[in-house]
Design a protein around this nucleic acid. Structure first.
Length: 434
DNA sequence: GTAGGGTTAG
C-alpha cells in the first residue's frame, strides 16, 4: 500500500514520538486525511488519544475547507474520547456557527464523566452566547466553579462568562463579574458595551465609554461602533462628531463597519447630507452601507432620494437584503408609489428573499396604504409566521379602507391564535373602532 | 487552544 507521503505507515504503527506534528504535517487535504484515517483504523492506532486528537483537529479546524461531518464521524467511532477530543469538536462546531451541536457534545461529555477543562469553557460559553442559552451557560458556570482552583487561562474563561451574561441580558450579573476581574481588557469592556447596546441601554453605553476614557483604558473600532449606535439613538451629535474626528486622526476611516455606523449616526441626528458625504467617500460599499444610507433618507422623510439611491445600488450590482427591502417598501408606502413597490415585491420573489415577519409586515402595510387591501391579505396569508404587528397592520389597513367587517373577522381569528391572545392587542383595536 | 462589529417599519 502506498501513501504517496514522505512518512511510511510503519512509522505510525511503531507509534511516533510526536504523532501530533506528524499528522498535522501530513493532512493537508481531505484525501490525505482519508488515507491516513483508513490506515489508522486498520492498525487501531486511532483509538489512542494522542492520535485521535490531531486527526480531529486536522479535519474539523485546519483543512482549508473544514470537514466537520467527517471529523464527527471519526469522533463518533472513538471508544473513549477524552477531553481534548471533545474540546476539538466543541470548538469546531462553535466556530462553524453550529452552537446546538457544541451544547449537545458538552452534555455528552458531562454524562460520560469526561471532565471539561480550561480549554472547554471558552468555546462552550461562546456557543451558549450564540444561541442565548442562558440556562445551559449557567450549568457551564457551575462546572467552572467546581474546579475550585488549578485551572489556567482564567482570564479567557472570565471574559467568556461576562460575554455570555451580557449577551443574554443579565447585565447586572455581567457587570458584577466584570467588576471583580483584576485585569479588565478591551475584550471585557467590549463585551459589557455590546451587551448594553444589544439590549437598548444606550445611556449606559455612553457612560461606560466615559469610564473608558476617564480611566485611560484601551478601546478599538468595535467599542466605537457600539458608542456610535448609542449616539444615533440618543441624538448625541457632539460625541458622535468627536468619534468622527478620532477616526479621521487615527486612520480608522477605511473600516466600512465604522463608517457605516458614522453614516447611521449622522442620519439619526438629522444630518443626512453629512451622512451622504461620508457614504460618497467610501471606497467599497457593501449591502449594509447602502442600506444604512437609504434608511437615512427614509428616516428623514426624503423618500424620493431613498428610492433614487436604491436604483444606484442596483446599478452598482450590490444585492439588496431584507433590511434594504423593508426600507424601500416603507418609502414606497409613504410616497404611495404603487408601481415601484409592486416591482420591489416581484424582486423579492425573484431573489427568493424570505418573507420574514419584518419584511412581510412592511409589504402588506405598503399594499394596505396604497389601497390594495386584497394584495395585503394575500401577503398576510403567504407569511410563514406573523406577530401582533402583522395582524395590526392588516386590520388597520382594512379598517382604513372601509372594510370594517373583514377587519373584525381578522380580529376574531387573531384572538383565536393562542400565542397572540396573551399579548395586549385589545387597546389597539379599540382605537380603530371607537 | 481567547472576542467583538455596522443597516429594519408598523
Amino acid at each position: 500500500m502506498s501513501f504517496g507521503l514522505s512518512t511510511s505507515p510503519t512509522q505510525l504503527i511503531q507509534f511516533p514520538k510526536n504523532p501530533k506534528s506528524l499528522i498535522l504535517d501530513q493532512c493537508k487535504t481531505i484525501r490525505d486525511l482519508r488515507q491516513i484515517h483508513g490506515h489508522l483504523i486498520k492498525t487501531r492506532l486511532l483509538h489512542h488519544p494522542a492520535v485521535a486528537e490531531p486527526m480531529l483537529e486536522s479535519a474539523a479546524l485546519l483543512l482549508p475547507v473544514p470537514a466537520i461531518d467527517y471529523a464527527f464521524s471519526i469522533f463518533a467511532h472513538l471508544e473513549n474520547p477524552d477531553s481534548s477530543a471533545y474540546n476539538v469538536m466543541i470548538r469546531a462546531f462553535t466556530k462553524a456557527q453550529n452552537p446546538e451541536s457544541s451544547i449537545f457534545l458538552f452534555r455528552k461529555m458531562i454524562e460520560n464523566s469526561v471532565h471539561p477543562d480550561e480549554f472547554t469553557f471558552p468555546s462552550i460559553l461562546k456557543a451558549c452566547s450564540q444561541v442565548g442559552a442562558l440556562r445551559e451557560g449557567e450549568q457551564v458556570h457551575a462546572q467552572i466553579l467546581k474546579l475550585v482552583d488549578g485551572f489556567g487561562r482564567r482570564g479567557f474563561v472570565e471574559n467568556a462568562m461576562v460575554h455570555l451574561y451580557a449577551t443574554c441580558g443579565r447585565l447586572e450579573l455581567a457587570h458584577q463579574l466584570f467588576d471583580r476581574r483584576s485585569e479588565r481588557s478591551v475584550i471585557a469592556w467590549n463585551s459589557m458595551i455590546c451587551g448594553y447596546a444589544r439590549h437598548g441601554y444606550w445611556t449606559e453605553v455612553v457612560e461606560l465609554f466615559g469610564e473608558i476614557l476617564g480611566m485611560g483604558v484601551g478601546f478599538n473600532q468595535v467599542t466605537l461602533i457600539n458608542v456610535l449606535m448609542a449616539c444615533g439613538r440618543l441624538g448625541d451629535l457632539e460625541l458622535g462628531e468627536w468619534i468622527y474626528e478620532y477616526a479621521l486622526v487615527n486612520g480608522l476611516m477605511k473600516d466600512v463597519s465604522l463608517v457605516t455606523s458614522l453614516i447611521d449616526m449622522y442620519a439619526k441626528c438629522g444630518k443626512v447630507d453629512a451622512a451622504r458625504g461620508l457614504f460618497d467617500q467610501l471606497c467599497t460599499r457593501d449591502v449594509i452601507a447602502w442600506s444604512a444610507m437609504i434608511n437615512g433618507y427614509m428616516q428623514s422623510s426624503r423618500f424620493k432620494e431613498a428610492l433614487a439611491l436604491f436604483l444606484d445600488m442596483q446599478n452598482a450590482n450590490v444585492e439588496p437584503n431584507e433590511v434594504t427591502m423593508v426600507t424601500v417598501l416603507s418609502s414606497c408606502a409613504a410616497l404611495g408609489a404603487l408601481e415601484t413597490g409592486r416591482w420591489a415585491h416581484s424582486y423579492i420573489k425573484k431573489k427568493n428573499l424570505k418573507l420574514s415577519i419584518n419584511l412581510g409586515t412592511t409589504l402588506l402595510d405598503f399594499y394596505a396604504k396604497c389601497g390594495c387591501v386584497n394584495s395585503a391579505i394575500e401577503v398576510f396569508n403567504d407569511m410563514p409566521s406573523r406577530n401582533v404587528w402583522s395582524w395590526t397592520a392588516l386590520i388597520q389597513g382594512l379598517a382604513n379602507s372601509g372594510r370594517g367587517d373583514t377587519a373584525l373577522e381578522f380580529y376574531h381569528s387573531m384572538l383565536q391564535e393562542k400565542a397572540i391572545k396573551l399579548k395586549p392587542v385589545r387597546p389597539n383595536l379599540l382605537r380603530i373602532y371607537m
